[in-house]
Design a protein around this nucleic acid. Structure first.
Length: 585
RNA sequence: GCGCCCGUAGCUCAGCAGGAUAGAGCACAGGAUUCCUAAUCCUGGGGUCGCAGGUUCGAAUCCUGCCGGGCGCGCCA
């Protein structure tokens, strides 16, 4: 249960009741009414702004209206007290038994606790990674992969029907460059001395094994052939090999896409021609000349040239955007329009693309295009992921791409583990720069959030093990724990922990609403802090330990609470794609 | 030049659809260890939420202008 929605419902019913008994006007518009946690816990568990928001409509003073509302709401079983405060807030305290019932609810619901019906089964397409198949993934791609994957899981938990998609950019100049790079490596594999890889080709050594394989299978049949003879074959084999590499990287990260769409296949099927024809028919395409870009350095090779343009300005973009390059081929934008139309036709009116922040200038035109091809039926949301600064014990780690020997995502995963990578990638808003210190993320200390949260989970698992040992006859499975006498949980820090737990469904919904999976990491860190805090109170006061010698009832109730914390932590980590650990070593 | 993002404690950052006295960690100062894992916890000082206006019962949050930083602006994807 989402406590906030539940109380909002009670507030709404109370307002209706007051209207029915003629103490409030009928038909008040309550859409602006919210129920939120007050900043200061001294103000109660929850507060509603209803009286302030409705005062004007009702032609009443907010405190007077608040008084009526407080009196009515306080009559509900779940509400212990309600009072008007400040400018007209109604502060609510819920009954301890209501809060304790959340623990039982969590234990009965298990891993599904926090799942929401907010999405109502609506289809959402989340496209992420979509790294060009020209080499292994680097750390920046990894961030996009983690953010996209966690966002997809988050939306699924919030009740959306989610498809995780990867767009393979296997058309265009970059993959041709890749093919040429592969051919060079192929000649090398045949024994030729190639020297330094020329500027403009990919120098990475990851093409070497692919080249050797071709040499072994085909011998020298391509060596002296003209480029147009081998290009197609080398391109295809290079792309396949690179995609295999990328899929391995993704697997190492635990990221799994359900749909891979090939740009080349889309183009071959005529999708680009079709979409442009369709836009032409609606007069959204014309031939015109663009102004030179207004940037500081006027590009030296600039020449005004009429070209085929999409009327992006009609859909909120700043300028109309070119669809054809000067050599007559389609721009990347043109094929991307076709791709997004394809997604729309597959049933996705809500699309989310996760891109690198360097593509920021591309967002408006793509959103304009989605609006255009769907007649305004579909919307595209773009999440931009900023740079990751790798460091080791404070020293920046060089990531020289030019030498081809950059630190790959795989290197980092092998070094610190998948879970640490995933967690750290979600400790910042996706648009903020992220510092990733290889040393720090494996430290076992308070300032490593990965450890801190996992440690809380591990401690709880340890409590379960120890409790079973201390009280051999005690039933400690979740459904038995759900029947424990929770009335024993009366300490303020216990109730505070329960209130945090009860906030999980709301946290899921608001994170999903905002498309911000990093909020889950913050939620879990707060919950872990609350748990560690209570744990340490047991050091000072033995009666506040989870396992209380000679007191099976208290132990059972506390273990129930601990287990509920573990379930929520595990549930959150699962959204993040991190595996909860049962023991720290 | 235009567009978008950012500016919150010494540092790194949260701040939920505008709510009450702006939070956390690090760092700094002090304290808790016969302990269910002290790998943790507790206490304390520390702020003109970049600046200036506006909107309203109420603004770190929304709007406008300015300052500072980042990114983008056809033939890369």
């Amino acid at each position: 249960m989402n406590v906030y929605s539940h109380i909002k419902e009670i507030v709404a019913i109370s307002l209706e009741y007051l209207a029915a008994s003629d103490r409030l006007p009928h038909g008040l518009d309550a859409t602006a009414v919210t129920v939120e946690p007050p900043r200061d816990p001294a103000h109660g568990d929850l507060a509603t702004n209803a009286a302030m928001v409705l005062a004007k409509q009702a032609r009443m003073n907010p405190r007077e209206l608040g008084g009526l509302l407080a009196e009515t709401v306080a009559g509900h079983d779940d509400v212990e007290s309600a009072e008007v405060a400040g400018p007209g807030f109604v502060n609510l305290r819920l009954s301890p038994s209501f809060w304790r019932a959340r623990v039982a609810e969590i234990l009965r619901t298990g891993a599904d606790y926090g799942a929401s019906t907010m999405g109502a089964g609506r289809a959402v397409n989340v496209e992420y990674v979509s790294a060009n198949p020209t080499g292994p993934m680097h750390v920046g791609h990894g961030r996009g992969a983690v953010v996209g994957d966690a966002l997809a899981s988050l939306l699924a938990k919030a009740g959306f029907e989610v498809v995780r998609e990867y767009y393979i950019n296997d058309a265009g100049a970059q993959v041709e460059t890749l093919a040429r790079s592969l051919h060079l490596r192929y000649r090398e594999a045949l024994g030729e001395e190639i020297g330094a890889v020329p500027e403009g080709l990919y120098p990475g050594e990851y093409l070497v094994p692919v080249a050797r394989l071709i040499a072994a299978e085909d011998g020298d049949k391509w060596r002296d052939a003209a480029e147009d003879v081998w290009l197609e074959s080398f391109r295809a084999r290079a792309v396949d090999a690179m995609m295999a590499l990328i899929r391995e990287d993704l697997a190492a990260l635990g990221v799994e896409h359900s749909v891979f769409t090939s740009e080349r296949a889309l183009a071959a099927a005529g999708a680009i021609d079709d979409v442009v024809t369709g836009l032409e028919a609606r007069d959204l395409v014309y031939t015109g000349t663009l102004e030179p870009p207004k940037g500081k350095p006027p590009p030296d090779d600039w020449e005004a040239r009429p070209q085929l343009l999409f009327r992006a300005t009609q859909f909120g973009d700043d300028v109309d955007r070119p669809l054809r390059k000067s050599d007559g081929s389609w721009t990347y934008f043109a094929s991307d329009i076709a791709y997004h139309l394809d997604k729309y036709r597959r049933g996705f009116a809500t699309m989310v693309d996760v891109w690198g922040a360097d593509h920021k200038g591309y967002v408006k035109r793509m959103q304009a295009a989605v609006k255009a091809v769907s007649n305004g039926e579909a919307a595209l949301d773009v999440r931009l992921c900023n740079l990751v600064n790798l460091s080791e014990a404070g020293e920046p780690v060089k990531m020289s791409k030019r030498s081809g020997n950059f630190v790959t995502l795989r290197d980092v995963i092998d070094e610190v583990g998948r879970d640490a990578v995933r967690f750290i990638m979600l400790t910042r808003n996706n648009e903020a720069l992220l510092d990733f210190d290889l040393k720090k993320v494996t430290e076992q200390s308070r300032d490593n959030p990965v450890f801190y949260v996992q440690y809380a989970h591990a401690r709880i698992c340890s409590v379960l093990r120890n409790a079973a040992e201390a009280f051999p006859g005690l039933e400690l499975d979740d459904s038995s724990l759900a029947n424990a006498d929770l009335a024993i949980l009366g300490d303020e820090s216990e109730l505070a922990m329960i209130k945090l737990l009860a906030g999980w469904p709301r946290a899921v919904e608001s994170a999903a609403e905002a498309f911000e999976p990093h909020r889950i990491a913050f939620f879990l860190t707060d919950l872990a802090a609350s748990f560690h805090g209570f744990w340490n109170r047991g050091n000072d006061d033995e009666s506040l330990r989870f396992i209380v010698a000679g007191d099976a009832d208290t132990t059972r109730s506390r273990v129930a609470l601990a287990r509920a914390v573990a379930l929520v932590i595990a549930s959150g980590l699962t959204v993040m794609g991190v595996k909860p650990v049962e023991e720290m070593r």
